[in-house]
Amino acid sequence: MDGNRRGFLKAAGFTVLAVGTGTVSVLRSARARPDAPTPSSQPAGANALVGKRWGLLVDTTRCKAREGCQDCRRACHRAHNVPDLPEPRHEIKWIWTERFRNTFPDAEHEFMAPAILDRPVAVLCNHCENPPCVRVCPTKATWKRPDGIVMMDWHRCIGCRFCAVGCPYGARSFNWRDPRPFLKEQNPDFPTRYRGVVEKCTFCDERLARGLLPACVVSCKQKALTFGDLADDRSEIRRLLASVRALRRKPALGTMPKVFYVV
């Protein structure tokens, strides 16, 4: 079968690539990108959004989370079949809010207005340029795509939770139990998960492939979220980043987050 031959050639190619990059990655250690797929001849889909380095800007001054707005979280969690678990310790979160003081522990001081210190800030996976989670994963179940998205393969994850330990931003959730009973409705456009795997935001890779912006971005009536290609200097996000003072979370760690904040 043609598929078999194609699959075999691919597997063989990737093995060579993986071994090659693997060896180099030990020497270079940090920016390893094993399993890097070769540029594909197949289109992701005719009208797919294609970028070189996707990023997100969160304008907390526009965000209405203080007034109880949960639009982005609801849209995201509905789109990705993220369950609502009753016990906080088992919670699964792709995008949620943390107080300013917890999000930017380096930027707070005691004379700051409580309104700022306690302001809710939307947090999600930072899709780091140099992601610690990818470095520690023992099976390449999580990796960085050429367009910068830190992706997950739930078929491959063994549930060791090393990525959750390695993430400095608490962006990863583990399925401590079967999530399905806690889903009010199932979105057929996206799989649910099985107990025992880790999950997180994937910058809506499945929506980008269909030419749609991430669900959180589209759902925000305040236009507080701007998504775009950081490699494109004419993109909206680049224009905004050049004109405002934007922060990233824990920049000293060298992870180079691609989620930026206006505070």
Partner: peptide
């Protein structure tokens, strides 16, 4: 099963969605 396996690899790992 081999076809589904190939589809899975292409969609999840290589970001190809159409065939």
């Amino acid at each position: 099963m081999a076809l589904l396996d190939e589809w899975r690899t292409r969609v999840v790992r290589h970001g190809e969605h159409a065939t």
